[in-house]
Nucleic acid binder design. Structure first.
Lengths: 215, 215
DNA sequence: TGTTTTTCTTGCCCTTTGTCAAGGTACCGG
DNA sequence: CCGGTACCTTGACAAAGGGCAAGAAAAACA
């Protein structure tokens, strides 16, 4: 896979190699912000990743299945959520360019997931499986460091969301979200945002009306 | 520090060594559940840890200070919380035997903390400072793995708390907490538990009365 | 471009939770 | 053992948010 730099490439394989290079662009930019890698390590990492495309509304994981992929979003937008007995959906996470998506519990333990993951927009992913995840960190030890740093930052983000959730009323929770993720608002339907902050779509609509009239 | 196994120990230094061994008991048990260590590595790790005792109500961190310690609870019980302008406290985390406590954002960035951390019970800690934290992982690489695994599990726990928080009504949130941390209820005052799940002490009191009458 | 589906807004009413205040209970420290 | 502080419970009322239903607006699709 991905043997670049050979001399007898024709025009079409140049296009393929360009396509493949583009495929990892966001991914390695993200990693290089956190750790440094040499070319050999980059090449090794690539062999552990499986690219995949998802169309809008397509599922990556359904409740009851085991989460077999830790997925990096190169392009597009995913959501994870669970569904109550009564049918209500609760947004757990969104992931767009530069974010990972997974049910980490199911991924690590192999137990059935209670989450659903699907695509809000057409999406391009790089996926890694549980055994590859473990093996990659043994083969390329600095990836252990990368994931440790990734998780540190995720804990900070989750802790902030949690504080907002237990501390504030609907309006403040919404303003908080707009502030921390200004980009989110334009790409994600309002009813999903409402669910993400734990209020109904009607309440969010009213909150936004009040905010608009205040200004 | 901690050079054990010398032949000329007298009675009193035996007592000291026993005391010091007890001091790390919970800590190494916790680590050994996640990774394996040889004696040399254990000895190295010990040199990075500072023991500390806190009395009930004593502060480990106050809002506005920088969080200079990543603290492991050997014995006792800590809480972290922040305080609103109006004076309301919001519990962020509890930590008892086998848990770490820190404002990880402030610890990693050196920026001022918005958290307070204090002791609910008399507490014994093992603390590590930011530069030691980074250095330890370089000297004992499997500690990088340990923290990666620790953070993975913390993410799972935080995600569950978050789902409970955005999905459920007061009663369900309380039952959820009782189920995931049965031990918590006995040691932590009810008003702090209420704050932890984002409801008022009055509401929690009513929830508990309803639950008691249902049975 | 027209049609269908999804998403958003609004009004009305009801439930849940918060607020304030008072009184009781348990626990801690001298 | 006694007094004070912290904690818990209860009631009455207020406010915030949820549920339902209908219609408007926007987006997707063919």
């Amino acid at each position: 896979m991905l043997e670049c730099g050979r001399s007898n490439f024709n025009e079409s394989s140049k296009l393929i190699s360009l396509f493949l290079a583009g495929m990892f662009e966001v991914f390695f930019a993200h990693i290089r912000e956190r750790i440094s890698l040499n070319e050999e390590e980059e090449a090794t990492i690539k062999t552990y990743l499986t690219p995949k495309k998802l169309r809008r509304k397509q599922y990556l994981l359904q409740e009851g299945d085991v989460c077999k992929y830790f997925s990096f979003v190169e392009k597009g937008l995913l959501r994870s959520y669970n569904v109550e007995d009564k049918g209500a959906e609760h947004m757990i996470q969104f992931a767009w360019e530069g974010w990972w998506m997974v049910d980490i519990f199911s991924f690590l333990t192999g137990e059935q997931s209670t989450y659903n993951i699907d695509a809000i927009e057409d999406t391009e992913l790089l996926m890694i499986q549980p055994h590859s995840y473990e093996e990659l960190m043994l083969k390329v030890p600095c990836m252990e460091r990368y994931f440790r740093i990734l998780f540190q930052n995720n804990i900070i983000a989750k802790e902030r969301r949690l504080i907002s959730s237990i501390s504030h009323a609907a309006e403040e929770k919404y303003l908080n979200l707009v502030q921390t993720h200004p980009g989110i608002i334009k790409r994600i339907p309002q009813n999903l945002i409402a669910s993400y902050i734990g209020i109904t779509p009607e309440t969010l609509s009213r909150v936004r009306r009040n905010l608009a009239s205040k200004k």
